[in-house]
Amino acid sequence: MLEGKFETASTMKKVIEAIKDSVKLCNLNCSQNDGITVQAIDDSRVLLIALKLDPSCFQEFRCDKDLVLGLDLESLSKILRQGNPEDYLTLIAEDSPDSLLIVFEDSKKDRISEFSLKLMDIDSDVLTIDEMEHDCAITLPAAAFAKVARDMKTLSESLQILVTKDSVKFKADGSIGTGSVILRARTNLDDTKESILIDLNKPVNLTFGAKYLNDIVKATPLADTVTIKLTDKAPAMFEYKLQGGFLRYYLAPKFED
């Protein structure tokens, strides 16, 4: 039996909103040691999502037997919208489940809402992702990255990211003209989450699909900062840290023909 109780429903609500536009169906893997993990690839096989919610993400967590819960994320999102962000949220499944029970509790108002979501058999490839060496790692405010990704998409379907030891440059080249945004590295000791940190082994110049970057920044409400790891001619990793877990996106770069 799985029983995972979140102190607030907001984490799960934000996680599902962050991934449901990229993948429609996915398997939730549940185990006592790892908590809940997800690996899902979008239909175009350009963007991969890796979610980890450790048992420490939950107020209470037990999973007697490893479970795979196949979910339609649009349906899950409809149910998660029924609860308030500050409600307790509990996910419950039997050992051989055909449905997932989702319970919201508002202890102050003595309100309990229960929903049952039908599960599906989902056949999906799992990709092996080893710890990668990277040429540079950038940590910046998640909102600042989201603004650049959203703004630059209006100019071009591609966004070039160039990193040097003291700045990150985002560049778009479109039919109406060009644009660039430079963010300089800075350390804000009063408010560390406002810092822009660049750890550079080698300068990087990579181009990504603006559409996918806009899918990634849907995770912005989950964390104050995002860490981006870039390597020449390899997928980039975008990480939003959660309390006791993470939501990572791996995005394949574009290449010149």
Binding site: I41, S44, R45, V46, L47, L48, D125, V126, L127, T128, I129, S156, E157, S158, D173, T207, G209, A234, P235, Y250, A252, P253, K254, F255, E256, D257
Partner: peptide, 14 residues
């Protein structure tokens, strides 16, 4: 603006 690569060319199916 380049060709969009797929993850399959970087990561193997487990």
């Amino acid at each position: 603006t380049g060709t969009q690569e797929r993850l399959d060319s970087f990561f193997k199916v487990a």
